[in-house]
Structures are given as C-alpha cells and as structure tokens.
Write a protein that binds this DNA or RNA. Sequence first.
DNA 1: CGCACGTTTGATCCCGCTCAAATTGGGTGG
DNA 2: CCACCCAATTTGAGCGGGATCAAACGTGCG
Lengths: 240, 240
Amino acid sequence: MSTARIDIHNSELPVLCQSCEARHKGMCGVLSGEQLTAMARHTRRVHHAAGEEMLADAMPITGYGNVMRGVVKLSKVLEDGRQQLVGLQFAPDLLGRLFAKENRVTAEAASDVDICMVPKAALERMVQENPALEHRIMQQTLRELDEARDWMVTLGRKSAAEKVASFLYLIASHIDPSQGEAVATFDLPLTRADIGDFLGLTIETVSRQMSKLKADGVIEIENYRHVSVPDLARLRMRCG
Amino acid sequence: MSTARIDIHNSELPVLCQSCEARHKGMCGVLSGEQLTAMARHTRRVHHAAGEEMLADAMPITGYGNVMRGVVKLSKVLEDGRQQLVGLQFAPDLLGRLFAKENRVTAEAASDVDICMVPKAALERMVQENPALEHRIMQQTLRELDEARDWMVTLGRKSAAEKVASFLYLIASHIDPSQGEAVATFDLPLTRADIGDFLGLTIETVSRQMSKLKADGVIEIENYRHVSVPDLARLRMRCG
DNA sequence: CGCACGTTTGATCCCGCTCAAATTGGGTGG
DNA sequence: CCACCCAATTTGAGCGGGATCAAACGTGCG
C-alpha cells in the first residue's frame, strides 16, 4: 500500500522537520527523504526572543535560517539613525542572502521566533548539488522582490491613511488563521514604532490613523496589539 | 547564413554577441561557446524608441530580454493613476521574471533601447539544462532586491533634497563612462516627471531641488538633460 | 502601589503639494 | 534663417498633510 509506505517514510523524517512549514511550503519541499535527512544533520533549532537582533547589517554571513515560527523584521538604517523596515519574513521564509559574504540588512525578531539554522557551507553545498533547491530559493527571492516593489508604491505614492490600511491588510493576509474569509483577527507583530519605520511615518501619525480607522468602524483594537477587521473588503478599499 | 554556420570549432562568436555586454558582465557570461551559439539561434535584436511600452503589467510573459543599450523603467500604477517607478535596468540586465506566467511590472523604454529577446520557452529550457545560468540570474535578482530595498530607505526616510541627490548619485554611478573618478558627466535618462515618479515627489519639487543643487555648485545643468558633477563626494554627502 | 514604557491625543510648524504663470529649447514650416 | 509652436521645465504664491514638541493616558511588571 502506497500510503503505508509513505507513512513509514514519514516516520523516518527528522523530528525537527515533521511539523515544519518549510517542508511543505518552503525550500525543504523540494528535498527527497534522504536529502532531508542529510540536511537535518546540519541544522539546529534556535530561539530568539522578541527584540533580539539576529543578523547585523554588513556583518559576515555564517549561516542561513528558515523561519519556523514568528515574524522577523528586516531593516536598514542611515548614518544618522533614521531607520526603514525593508521586509517582514514569516514561516517558512529563508533568512540570509544565498552565496553572499555579507548581510545587506539587519534582521531582528519582531515576535518570539524559532529558526532552523543551517551553516553557510552546508546549505551552499546542497544547493550546488541540487539545482531544484536553488530554483526553489530563487522563487522565494522573486516573491520578495515583488513584495519590495509593491511596498515601494506604498512608500512613494500613498497617503498616511492608505499606508496604515495597507499595512493592516498585509498583516491580516499573512497572519490571520481564518484564510479566505471576510473577517480577520490577529495580534500585531509590530509596535507602533516599527509600523512607523515600515511605512515611513512617525509613531504619532500611525497612531492617529489607526484611531481614525477605529472611529470609522473599519477595525477594532484591544490592548493596543489585538486587532479585528470585521470586513476585509472595506479595509482593502482604503489601501488606495 | 554566415551567422548560422557557426561551428564545430567554436572560435567564432555569433555576430550579435560580439559586442554585447551580457557576454561579459551579464548572464551570457556563464555560457560556453557552444551554449552561446545555441542561445543565439533563438535570439533576435529588437529596438524600442524612447517612451515605448515594452511589457505591460499583468500581461502574459512571452519572452525575456537582455538590455544591450539604453535604460528601461520598471513601474507600477495604482487604480487611480498614481505611478511609482520600482526599478531601472541598464545593460546587461535581464528583463522578465524567470518562470513567471505574468508580468508584475510595466516596462518602458526610458531612452532608445536595444534588447536581445529570447523566447520564454527557449530560455527556460536552457536554464533547466544549465544550473549555472539560473545561478547567474539568481545573482542578478538578488542585486535587484538589494537595490529595491536601498530605494525603500530613500522613499521612506529621506527628504526631497536627499532623494534628488540620491537619484543623481545613482545615475552617475551607472551611466558615467569615467568610472571611479571624482567627476561625472552624463545625460539624464529620465524626464523630471519620471524622476518624480521614481522618488515619490512631484515634478515641481524635483525641479526646485535640482535648481538648488545647481545654485549650491554641486551640479551643473545644460539643456535640462545634461548634468555634470564636479565633485561626486560632495554630491554623496547630500544623500543622507 | 508606583514606576516605566508604549500609546494616544493635542497644538503648532514646516516641507512638499497644488495651482498658476513664465521661461527655455527643440522642432517645423515658410 | 527666422517665426512660430509645443512640450518640458522652472519659478512663484499659498495651502495642507504629516512632522515635531509636549502632555496625558493605559497597561504590565517589580
């Protein structure tokens, strides 16, 4: 029975991989059972508390990491300290620029985060031996490029109200468990300061725009962090 | 017939490739003589006049193109017509998102442009047979991602004066023939309107900031388009 | 309880947008 | 070669959205 065989196969999976999203939707999805086992020999699970810096800009890359749980902020800073978030990573995104020697961004845990770390040399070797793996990572990179370009439109051309609505919509699409429904409920993974850095706005403006969305009945806010969107289409309309 | 009869001895390059930057710095650099010849059997050189739309957003991808000469604008528009440039491509960049079915951006010739077009299926087949090719394209994609993220910082966190200085510095680094020197002279590949769309500013603000840079002696402008930067370091200082 | 921090709200200012007009330069036809 | 036109650009005047500065509020934690 083929299903039984697959089950046996599954039972041989590395423990760490059994419940990992990367095996399904992430880069590990292209690996055979053997390859996955080989990969798992090099990986270790690492936890980062919210706020911890995981990778510093312009520092050597020592390894790559698959996000297993939580949200990671990618940011860049100007000499005078002005900061801009340039990306958010969710499970099962890969952290680290393939084959690069240095980071081009700072990575920080936005929430508590679990990462499956693999040493630089190990992943690069597997990539060289397995073109499908590079192909899969390429697909993720292209998606990140699309997201960055979409965000450029938001940063360059939208009003503060539209920016905040766009951010909430983005989070709702990524975090909310009830996919595809008209309503969404979630905890914001970012503080107002982070949201400001993401949107190119000040804390005060973010706060004011969220208050306005609340006053207009588009969202509900509890304890600053918890947000409900009773009608996603209505939020979507405010994204410009 | 002369080009078709390239050879078993592979000492001759396809005519089109002989002076093409893609062969050195671009993706064709990873191809052997034979592979290059095979590639060239599928390519054709296409010219686009300044202002022509080359790829429309959300339209099917029919082929890829290597920029041989000129500058290509990548842009996105909101429903109400607000526009944002999300990238500029110079020789020898590859135009088109690998393996994607649809464009995610609009591509327009900023200047007169020569493109080496290769049909979608042909390039994808070569990529599948030649992992080094995908690797090379991956490197370019990563560079584009870096550029997009750098630009997000400019869009989100810089003042109008810093944005314009950053734009001029970017162009100077890409276009000016005298590499590595302290001075630079070049023709702007974009109109003020394009520059505004790139920087998230209005035409008037771009113009005012350029006038200010001129008044301050940081740049010289001739006939609107031609710009000289006597001291690149001084321009760099104004980029924030 | 009381401190500290994140957030909200208020008052005011200024950079960049909007609307409007003048200027420049390139192209065209006589 | 010049007169004219048209589009791109520059310049000016005034306004407003978002920043800045400041204070009050809520929440979690020792």
